[in-house]
Design a protein around this nucleic acid. Sequence first.
DNA 1: GACATATATTCACATATAGCGATACGATTC
DNA 2: GAATCGTATCGCTATATGTGAATATATGTC
Lengths: 122, 122
Amino acid sequence: MARAATTTDVFNAIAEPRRREIIGLLSNGEEWAVNDVVARVDIEQPTVSKHLGVLLQVGVVNVTKRGQHRMYRLDPTQLKPVHDWVKSYERYWTHQIDRIKEIAEQKTLEMIAHGRTPGTSK
Amino acid sequence: MARAATTTDVFNAIAEPRRREIIGLLSNGEEWAVNDVVARVDIEQPTVSKHLGVLLQVGVVNVTKRGQHRMYRLDPTQLKPVHDWVKSYERYWTHQIDRIKEIAEQKTLEMIAHGRTPGTSK
DNA sequence: GACATATATTCACATATAGCGATACGATTC
DNA sequence: GAATCGTATCGCTATATGTGAATATATGTC
């Protein structure tokens, strides 16, 4: 099987740095015409159109036709799955003191439990 | 140019759902032998080895040789870049009330400023 | 209608998968 | 040292890029 399409989900879509860059631009909440984006990033117009197309397919942006312009707007809520997933690991790098304490507590609990957690591979 | 390698950075590495699944397994902080992982996910051993190899290259896991086993351990701090990036958008889906207020305030400020924020495309 | 502007689509290219099956390699056990 | 276990690697297939160049498709303007 080949690699999953970039349009499969948000995780694949945001793997591309330029798409994250475009998302960053649109994060001011305004509507952006394609050429507004092109003027700000060092990417050709067709490429920008394609990246916006990917973001559109996964729902990270909306588009509205206004005259000959197509106005793109960010829908930040579509990034929530990424946030939800990575949030579980947040405690490992925030609050250094608390983190040390947490890890110590965890180890203690493990010692008490005294059970091999991963499948005991002979 | 082709798509960036999965080993380019954490964003590319975690785009693959099975790698996120493996990360989830290892999140108990224990050391996992390859076969421990194989026993838990419905993936063949060579594929698991490859996924672990990708995660290793981007630093999300460490490996230690112990006898004929290779023990993999998660290094969750390597996921921080993802968290940092997505955290900027957190406010859009948390605290529904505050969010409405924030957006209203933002619009008001924009009206006061009265300047077109994106590059005024003629 | 002729022409310019804004955006999308098509083509070709170089490259990178994910997974399977077979196999190679190192460590362990007998 | 032969068999076995744990793991990595190779060859293969099918597929999906990201980008640039060229072109098509609207839409707006004179």
